[in-house]
Amino acid sequence: YETDHQDYCEVCQQGGEIILCDTCPRAYHLVCLDPELEKAPEGKWSCPHCEKE
C-alpha cells in the first residue's frame, strides 16, 4: 500500500524502526521523542508537532 509518510525520523533524519504520525506525514524513532516511548503506541497516534496544534 502506498503512503506519503517520510521514511526517516523527523528529529535525527535517520531511517530504521520509526513510528508514523496518524495526522501528518512525519515519522519518529521512539527514542527521539521527548519524552521517549518504550514501545509503539497502540491505535491512533499524533506526533508532538500535531499535539501542539
Rank of each mutant, 00 (worst) to 15 (best):
I19L: 13
Y8L: 12
D7A: 09
E53P: 14
D22A: 13
A27R: 08
T3V: 11
A40M: 11
E53G: 12
V11Y: 11
Y28K: 02
L33A: 08
E42Y: 08
W45A: 08
K44T: 10
D4G: 10
H29I: 00
D22K: 06
C47I: 00
D34N: 03
R26A: 10
G15V: 07
E53S: 02
A40Y: 05
D7Y: 01
I18H: 11
T23I: 07
E53D: 10
C47F: 01
E42H: 09
D34R: 07
L30D: 05
H49Y: 09
D4A: 14
E53L: 11
S46L: 12
E42W: 04
D7M: 13
L20V: 11
Q6F: 05
D7V: 12
C24F: 02
Y28F: 04
A27Y: 06
H29A: 02
T3C: 04
Y28S: 08
Y1T: 15
C9N: 01
C50P: 02
G16M: 14
I19V: 08
D22V: 05
D34L: 06
Y28L: 07
C50D: 02
K52N: 03
P41D: 08
L30Q: 13
C32W: 00
D7F: 01
I19C: 07
P41W: 04
R26P: 01
G16Y: 14
A40L: 09
L37W: 02
I19D: 10
Q13N: 11
P41H: 12
L37F: 07
Y1D: 01
L37V: 10
V31L: 08
E51L: 07
E36W: 04
S46M: 04
T3I: 15
L33F: 10
A27S: 07
D34A: 12
E36P: 12
V11G: 15
T23H: 03
C9I: 01
L33R: 04
C21L: 01
L20F: 12
Q6Y: 03
E17A: 07
G15Y: 12
D22I: 06
D34W: 02
E38N: 04
V11K: 15
E17C: 08
Q13R: 13
A40V: 10
T23R: 07
W45V: 10
C32N: 02
E53Q: 14
H29P: 02
Y8W: 07
I18M: 10
E36I: 09
H5W: 09
D4M: 15
I18L: 08
E53F: 15
